[in-house]
Every structure is written in structure tokens, then in C-alpha cells.
Design a protein around this nucleic acid. Structure first.
Length: 927
RNA sequence: GGGCGAAUAGCUCAGUUGGUUAGAGCGCCUGUCUUACACACAGGAUGUCGGGGGUUCGAGUCCCUCUUCGCCCACCA
């Protein structure tokens, strides 16, 4: 038989592409709402909502991991008989997309969005998204994702925009959305406010400047002429409206109510008493800048102080109307950081800079452009989160929703317990415009589901709020807005909500996951899913997160092109412990993805062997084969299959809680993908390929009934292996399965039932041939060890005498399997009652089975003596420890019965083994 | 500053409520193109389970402590 070279086998990307098209066009991934039991159908629904990638994203390895995990789960459930829906989509990604288009505009046309104007800019962005927006979803197909593309969603469609407005209006009606005047995080590059979550902390070493603030009027007693304040941001001093001391601080009690002459700005500000001032920090005196610091804002409110803004939206020093006279001419228009340096110099020159010390603190940065965020007083829309957080906390505490890995639950609870109101307005153009209109004459804003043209109260002109909503305000509705909400009669909503598992990275636990849970309870009155699975991050060998900008990324499509999507998927899944990061080396893609590549090749080779040796005769169904025709090897592999199915099921499941909440026994189980991968790999490779295929080789060449039995079992177990592996490696398994006899002509493996164990308890029947085959394996292992130990070349056919020491049954089994054992070890086997021990004989014990192997002229007797004596010593040591343990009353009385029993059994086994070993030593070494 | 987690073979990690001689993949060493597969087969080596203390008949597993890393949160000017 001629075999194609390996290189031909390892270029699967082309066939994968056409295979995917077949799946897609045949509708294999489309879910049918009418089959959900919730709408009167016959199947449990199982739904996964894809975390929508940003519409401008291109696929990176993080998406690859995320999509693979989701695909494994959804394919498993689809085969297991659920009506499985994996709903894909994209996010319009307000700031991110606007930034992309603005950069493009600046690069290509040297224009800003203001040059274009709002309407033209939005049109431009819409066109850009239309042209490029489908890229990532197309790329996700390339790794085999079995999404229902007929339901592809996008957060900016009319349908989802309607849901956004509905949510806004409802929350406003309940009084949970309000307009707030306070200090928020402002990005002076994106020119928008940010939520707390979007302003990320980064540790930096800055300077703490100690500045002398002179008293405005020299005190009568001449005691104290100035105070010293400490600040990390001297430029904000122009907006100071007071200095505060603690009311109980004896050092400054006399100053309260006096006035300071603010340097540079030259205005008089009061010394106030407020508990916010910490006597232990610095000098105990703190400057108060209400418009540029959230704490100071609170102090200012308590003391009814003015709140002058001294910076422009773009971060340059500027005098607002209520800051008149505070910003000197030379600083106006100067960047905030340049102004900081300038002010420090001025203070130094005038002797007011007491000292400067290095200061480690954390500074907030814009999560989109990394600009240092400026706290800034402004008017924004907020959502009151505390009422929404309550049911979300309750659900996780009571097991209605579980978060895996468990440790993230504490993080979730911690965040929700201290939740703060959500700033949802953004000063951007790309997004859902806030559905609020203002009448020129009437005082109250109009909040409306529909566009408003005229004021409903006075009929006058109205103007819509300029701002758009935070991107995440549409994302948090995703589990139901994509299914038709607010139309509660929608078929999809009835059939598929609540969804089942939410699979994402921990980075967006607060941005998205927690808010979806809150949104689900608020708008649907029900949890959006019962399980949150937070998978790890893909990192390089230095444990640095992979990203294109860091230059350590791996393009999943390169991997797909080189080794196939299956190799990518298998490698990622096999390496994915619960919540653990996946480490791959971008410098050695070949090495990194070798596990997947090798495994796929192995599968293909098993398939090739089976298909080329099967012949064209009809293959019998395993169920129709009389039990007595099954060989020990047949029974063994069928047993192993049952074990593999059980292992896979317990690694993956249960798919859903049995009741309304997770039972404590199941709360932490399931979704252990690497264990599932290992269980199926072990079956296919270590058991099916390494042992069963080898064991059938002789039988396939011979004829008769036994050949058909072997063919039947072979096809059965391989078919089952392909089913078990389909969720991980869908392409190669489908390709092989299609060639296997006995499947429906138009069927697809993706839709075939998940395998079920033949027997409920695989190992219960000890008389079964399956366990008898273990004796054959042990014997073969022992013989191979001997061969290797004595460096007998594999080609050399040798004679071996096996002496079964266990019992009559063992003797019979070995007798009957002698031919197979001989073929697997290239020995001619004799089973005898006594071994011809002596100078030219060698014997080894394995599992209680004595095997004597005469190896004429090969054995070095001296070396063998040493080896046997070493083995004996080792055994003695272990045995004495065992005996000691069994003599210990504490052990025998307190340890569970099965443990003690196992130890007793072991003691007798080891004892027998020791007996034989020492006999052998005596015979061979003569002492 | 608050909260959480991790440390097991050269590397990446499993190790379920304490209970056989602590496992897997990759890497490493030896041999082999044994009629599916050298991306393979066969054999092999490698672990004071981070240090110390404790509970227990028994600890990788539970408790305390130290060390080292990591993650999340944070309104210390």
C-alpha cells in the first residue's frame, strides 16, 4: 500500500474552508425556536451569547480562545440533544470606533470630526463599519465557530437601538436615571467623560509638592504667617477655593475662618474646618479644588463654596466664567502639564515652594487612549446602581448564578457591594443618542421612546441632548435585546431566554458581565444565564498578555493556515485549565501548536488505517454481535469507551442546574475543558490507537467471523471517538466520519447524537473480558521492558516463557492470548508452570504474573543480579512501611474500610512478589 | 491602603470531600522507518509538592507563620 507523505496530510486549511461552507449552507448551526420546550417543542434550549467583539476589531488569539471555548460547549450541547443557539454579533464600540475613524480622517485628510460636522462624521463612520465591520465575524468562521449566523446582531441596528431607548426610558420612569452635576473622569483627548471602570488606575511615581500659602492678613500675635499644603497637581491650585484643616487639629484651630492669599491666582480664600482633612497626612492642611477633584467637590458642596473650572476640555489652562481673574495671561492656553512645570518654577522663584518629594500614587488613565484622566466638574446622566445590584448579588449568593472559577465570585460580590452610580453619557458622536429633548421654554427635559419634534407641552422647538450613551449601555441588554426584547412575545425571546452559559475573559467582569446580570433582572425579571465561565488570557512565555501593539501576538489565522483550525483549537483547549492562562511562544509557533497538530495527524492516521483495512463488506453493528464472539480486546476497548464517555461527561457537565439554583454538589463541577480533552485524547490515542488497533491487525488480515467482529467493534469505537472529539476538532472528525460506513448519507457529525455508555457501570463486572485484557497489557509491558533493558533489537525474534503465578484463570488467559502477546512483542511465547531458572534465564514479575524469558547469550548475569537486588531492596523498604501502617491500630480502626482492605491486599501481593524476587535472586546470584 | 489567589518534574499545568508507590502534555536521554502514523513507535531519567511550625494513625491536600509572585478594587491630598 502506498501512503501519501505527511506534508500532504498537514495542509488542511483548504478542506476546512469548504467543510465550513457545507455546514453553514446546510443550516447545521441554525437553531429552531419552535423546538425549544419553552415554546412547546421537544428539546431543552441551550444558548450562548457571543461577547460581541468591537465591530472594527480584527481577530487576535484572545478571540480565538474565546470562540473556541464557546464552540466546544455549544457543539457538545448540540450533539447532546439540546436546541443549541450560539448567537453572534458585534458591538458598535463608541469610543473605540470613533477613535479609529478620527485617526483615519486625520491621517488621510488632515481633518478633525469638527471639520466634518456631526452628521457627516456619523455617516462616514457608518460607511466605514459597513465596509469593514464584517471582517471579524468572517474570521471567526475560519476557526470553525458554529454560530447561528442567521441571528447575527449588532448593537446599533434599529432593533437594538429600540431596546436601548426602552431601557433608558424605563429606568428614567423608575427614577433610576438622573442628571448629575459632579466631578467625573474626563479624557482630554477623547473629549468625553468616562465611567469609573473606563478610567484605569496605573501606579506612577510622581512628585508631592509642598506649597506655602501665605495668610492674607498678618496675624496680630505674629505667630503663624502661612500654611503649607501638599499636592501632586499644582496646576489645579488656580482653582482652589479654600484650604481645609481638621476641626479638632489643635495646630490650626486659630486659623479657621481666616483667609489665605492664593499665590499666582492672587485671590483670597478661606481656611475652613472639615473632617476630610487628615491631620496625619502631610502638614494636615489640604487645598480645596472642587471643580477638579471629587473629594474637594464634596467638601465644596458641604461648605457652599464656588467651583471654578480652570482648564479647558482639551486640558489647557483656561478661565471659565466663574474663575475670572484666576488664570494669569502667561498660563492661558498652556497644556496642563506644561502649566504644572511653569507654576512650580514660579513658586520656587518666589520662595513659596517649601519642598518637593517623590510620591508613589496611582493615576487614572483613559482605557481607550491611555491619556491621563482629568477630574472635571460637569453635567452627566447617571444610573442609580444600588437597587439594580441587589438582585444581582442575591443571585450569586444563593447559587442562581455561578461564576467559574470560583475565586471571581468574591471579586464580583466585592464590586457590587461597593457599587457606585454609572455615568452613562459620553460626549461622543458615535453611539446611541440620549433620548432626551430640551424645550427652549419649558423647564423639564422630555424623555421619550420616540423622536420628539415639538415640545408636547408648548409646541415649541426642541433640541435633542448632544451626548450619546456609553457603549456598555447597549451591551448590558445583549442577552435579551438580541432575542427581540422589548417585544416580550418574540419567539426567540420565549424560546431562548434565559440563556445558559456566558463565556468571556475576566477583564470585562464589571464592564459587561455584572451589568448584564443587573440588566437581566431589571428588564426581564430573570437571570440572563446560570453560569459565567471566565477563561484565562493568552500570554507569551514571559507571561505577558498577547497583543498586537506589544508585538508578541500570534495571529490565529496564521496558525489555521499552517496547521489547521483543529490544531489551534485542540492546543488551546488542552492547555486550558480552569481559569488558567494559556501560555504559547510567539517565537516558536511550530512548537507551541505541536500538541494539536500531532493529535490531528494521529486521528487522521487512525482513520486511514481503519478505512484502508475495512474492505467493502457490510460492517456488523456491535449490538448485533453475540457476546461470546467478542474477544478480550474487544470487551476491553468497549469498556474503555464507556469510561471515556463517563469521563468526558463528568468533565463537561452538568449542562444546567437541576433546579432553580445550583445545588452545592454541582456548583463547582463541569466546564473543565482540559480534562475533557485529556479523557478523549487518552481514549483515541493511548487506548484505541496504541492497543486496540494493534490488537486487531492480525484479525483483519485473517478472514471469517472474527474479522467481522473486529471490523464491527473498530468502526463502533472509532465512530464514538469521533463523536466525543467533534466539539474540539470538528473538521478532521467530520472528514473521517463522513467516510465511515453506516452513517446517514446527508448527515453531519455536528448533528449526530452524543455517545452513550453501553453499560451503566463499566467496571462493575469483573468477569468481563475487559479487565482480563489488562493482564495481556501487563505482560506485554513486562516483555517490552526486558527487551529494552537488554537492548534486544526490535527485529530480533526471541523466545519467551511466561510463568503465570497468579492463578489458574491467569494461566488460561495467557495461554489463549499467547499469539497476540507474541505479535505485540515479537516473541514466540510459551506458557509454562515453571521457569527454567539458571544462568541463562531471566524472570520478572508483573502484577503477580511470573514471566520467565530465556534470552540465550544476551543476559549479563552480574548486571541482572544487581538490578534484581536493587529492586528487592526497594520493595523491602516499601513493604516495611506498609506493614508498619497496618500494624498501627489508629489506621486500621479509623481509616475507611476500603482503604484498609486495599492496603491488606497490597501487603499480600507485595509479599508474594518479594518471595518470588528473592527466590530469583538466589537462583541467579547464588546467595 | 482594601480584597483575593498562586507556589507540585526543565516548561505549562492536573491532583474532587486528607487515604495505593504524586500524574499529563511538551522538552530531555536511549533504541527503532515493527506493512496507519518519525507530527510516529518502544523504553528511560527527572519531584526534600516554596521555607518553617502545627493538627492527624496518615498532609501536596487542613491550620498558623515566613518568603516570592500574580490578579481585582481604591476619593491618601
Amino acid at each position: 500500500m502506498t501512503t501519501p507523505p505527511i506534508t500532504e496530510l498537514s495542509k488542511p486549511s483548504a478542506t476546512e474552508r469548504s467543510r465550513y461552507q457545507q455546514w453553514e449552507t446546510s443550516g447545521a448551526f441554525i437553531a429552531d425556536a419552535s423546538r425549544s420546550v419553552r415554546s412547546g417543542g421537544d428539546r431543552e434550549p441551550f444558548t450562548i451569547m457571543m461577547p460581541p467583539p468591537n465591530v472594527t476589531d480584527i481577530l487576535h488569539v484572545g478571540h480565538g480562545l474565546n470562540s473556541t471555548v464557546q464552540d466546544v460547549i455549544i457543539r457538545w450541547r448540540r450533539m447532546a440533544g439540546d436546541e443549541a443557539l450560539w448567537l453572534p454579533g458585534t458591538d458598535h464600540a463608541g469610543i473605540a470606533t470613533q477613535n479609529v475613524v478620527e485617526k483615519k480622517l486625520a491621517r488621510e485628510e488632515k481633518k478633525t470630526r469638527f471639520d466634518l460636522g456631526r452628521e457627516a462624521f456619523v455617516a462616514r463612520t457608518t460607511a466605514f463599519v459597513a465596509a469593514t465591520g464584517g471582517t471579524i465575524l468572517q474570521q471567526i468562521r475560519g476557526i470553525g465557530a458554529s454560530c447561528d449566523w442567521s441571528r447575527t446582531a449588532y448593537t446599533l441596528t434599529p432593533e437594538l437601538s429600540r431596546a436601548v431607548r426602552e431601557a433608558f426610558v424605563r429606568l428614567h420612569e423608575k427614577g433610576l436615571i438622573y442628571r448629575g452635576h459632579r466631578v467625573i473622569h474626563w479624557c482630554s483627548r477623547c473629549l468625553t467623560s468616562l465611567s469609573d471602570e473606563e478610567a484605569e488606575h496605573k501606579d506612577e511615581t510622581g512628585s508631592l509638592y509642598h506649597i506655602t500659602y501665605p495668610l492674607a492678613d498678618a496675624p496680630a500675635d505674629g505667630s503663624m504667617t502661612s500654611v503649607t499644603v501638599a499636592t501632586t497637581r499644582p496646576e489645579t491650585m488656580l482653582g482652589d477655593v479654600a484650604v481645609a484643616v481638621h476641626p479638632d487639629d489643635p495646630r490650626y484651630r486659630a486659623l479657621i475662618g481666616k483667609e489665605i492669599l492664593l499665590p499666582i491666582a492672587g485671590v483670597r480664600i478661606p481656611v475652613i474646618a472639615d473632617a476630610y482633612a487628615d491631620p496625619a497626612f502631610g502638614t494636615g492642611v489640604v487645598k480645596i479644588t472642587p471643580a477638579h477633584d471629587p473629594n474637594d467637590f464634596e467638601v465644596g458642596r458641604r461648605h457652599s463654596l464656588p467651583m471654578p473650572i480652570v482648564m479647558s476640555p482639551t486640558g489647557e489652562m483656561e478661565e471659565s466664567a466663574d474663575a475670572a481673574g484666576r488664570v494669569p495671561a502667561n498660563l492661558r492656553g498652556m497644556d496642563r502639564f506644561a502649566a504644572r512645570a511653569e507654576i512650580v518654577e514660579t513658586l520656587r522663584a518666589s520662595g513659596l515652594l517649601a519642598r518637593v518629594e517623590p510620591h508613589a500614587h496611582s493615576v487614572r488613565h483613559c482605557y481607550r487612549c491611555d491619556t491621563v484622566v482629568e477630574p472635571r466638574l460637569s453635567d452627566q446622566w447617571f444610573v442609580s446602581m444600588e437597587p439594580l445590584a441587589r438582585p444581582a448579588l442575591e443571585a450569586v449568593r444563593t447559587g442562581g448564578i455561578r461564576i467559574l472559577p470560583e475565586r471571581w465570585e468574591a471579586v464580583y460580590v466585592n464590586w457590587l457591594e461597593g457599587i457606585r452610580d454609572w455615568n452613562i453619557s459620553r460626549q461622543l458622536w458615535w453611539g446611541h443618542r440620549i433620548p432626551v429633548w430640551y424645550c427652549a421654554t419649558c423647564p423639564d427635559p422630555i424623555v421619550s421612546r420616540d423622536d420628539v419634534a415639538l415640545c408636547p407641552r408648548c409646541g415649541g422647538a426642541v433640541r435633542q441632548d448632544d451626548d450619546v450613551l456609553d457603549t456598555w449601555f447597549s451591551s448590558w441588554l445583549w442577552p435579551f435585546s438580541t432575542l427581540g426584547w422589548p417585544d416580550t412575545a418574540s419567539r426567540d425571546l420565549r424560546a431562548f431566554y434565559p440563556t445558559d452559559v456566558l463565556i468571556t475573559a475576566p477583564e470585562i467582569l464589571f464592564f459587561w458581565v455584572a451589568r448584564m446580570i443587573m440588566g437581566g433582572f431589571e428588564f426581564m425579571g430573570e437571570r440572563p444565564f446560570h453560569t459565567v465561565y471566565l477563561h484565562g488570557t493568552v500570554r507569551d512565555t514571559q507571561h505577558v498578555k498577547m497583543s498586537k501593539s506589544r508585538g508578541n501576538g500570534i495571529d490565529p489565522l496564521v496558525v489555521v493556515d499552517r496547521y489547521g483550525a483543529d490544531a489551534l483549537r485542540y492546543t488551546l483547549v488542552a492547555g486550558l485549565g480552569m481559569g488558567a492562562d494559556v501560555i504559547v511562544d510567539p517565537g516558536d509557533i511550530d512548537q507551541s501548536f505541536a500538541p494539536g497538530r500531532n493529535f490531528v495527524t494521529k486521528l487522521r492516521n487512525i482513520g486511514r488505517f481503519i478505512l484502508t483495512n475495512l474492505g467493502d463488506d457490510p460492517v456488523p453493528d456491535v449490538a448485533s454481535i453475540p457476546a461470546e464472539q467478542l474477544t478480550r480486546a474487544d470487551r476491553w476497548i468497549l469498556d474503555r469507551l464507556d469510561v471515556a464517555i463517563a469521563d468526558a461527561n463528568s468533565a463537561l457537565g452538568p449542562a444546567r442546574p437541576s433546579g432553580p439554583a445550583w445545588d452545592s454538589s454541582e456548583l463547582r463541577s463541569g466546564l473543565r475543558l482540559s480534562e475533557y480533552a485529556e479523557a478523549t485524547r487518552r481514549f483515541a490515542w493511548s487506548e484505541l490507537a496504541d492497543w486496540y488497533v494493534e490488537a486487531t491487525k492480525g484479525r483483519l488480515l485473517a478472514g471469517g467471523v472474527d474479522r467481522d467482529v473486529a471490523r464491527g467493534v473498530l468502526v463502533h469505537v472509532f465512530d464514538a471517538a469521533l463523536r466525543l472529539l467533534q466539539p474540539i476538532v470538528p473538521f478532521v472528525t467530520e472528514e473521517l466520519w463522513q467516510q465511515l460506513p453506516g452513517h446517514p448519507a446527508e448527515g453531519t457529525l455536528a448533528r449526530v447524537p452524543w455517545p452513550e455508555a453501553r453499560r451503566a457501570t463499566p467496571d462493575a463486572d469483573s468477569a468481563n473480558g475487559g479487565s482480563q485484557f489488562e493482564l495481556v497489557r501487563e505482560t506485554v509491558d513486562a516483555l517490552r521492558q526486558l527487551r529494552s533493558e537488554y537492548a534486544v533489537t526490535p527485529q530480533k525474534l526471541i523466545a519467551a516463557v511466561i510463568v503465570p503465578s497468579r492463578d489458574v484463570a491467569a494461566r488460561r488467559i495467557l495461554d489463549e492470548e499467547a499469539a497476540l502477546i507474541g505479535r505485540l512483542t515479537r516473541c514466540t511465547i510459551t506458557v509454562a508452570d515453571a521457569a527454567p531458572l539458571g544462568t541463562a534465564a531471566h524472570a520478572v514479575l508483573s502484577g503477580g504474573t511470573g514471566i520467565a524469558v530465556p534470552l540465550e547469550g544476551i543476559i549479563d548475569v552480574k548486571r541482572e543480579c544487581q538490578r534484581l537486588q536493587g529492586e528487592l531492596e526497594q520493595l523491602d523498604k516499601q513493604l516495611s512501611a506498609l506493614v508498619q501502617r497496618l500494624a498501627n491500630e489508629g489506621f486500621t480502626s479509623r481509616a475507611p474500610a476500603h482503604v484498609v482492605e486495599a492496603e491488606r491486599r497490597k501487603e499480600s501481593e507485595w509479599g508474594a512478589r518479594r518471595q518470588q524476587l528473592s527466590e530469583k535472586v538466589r537462583a541467579l546470584c547464588g546467595s
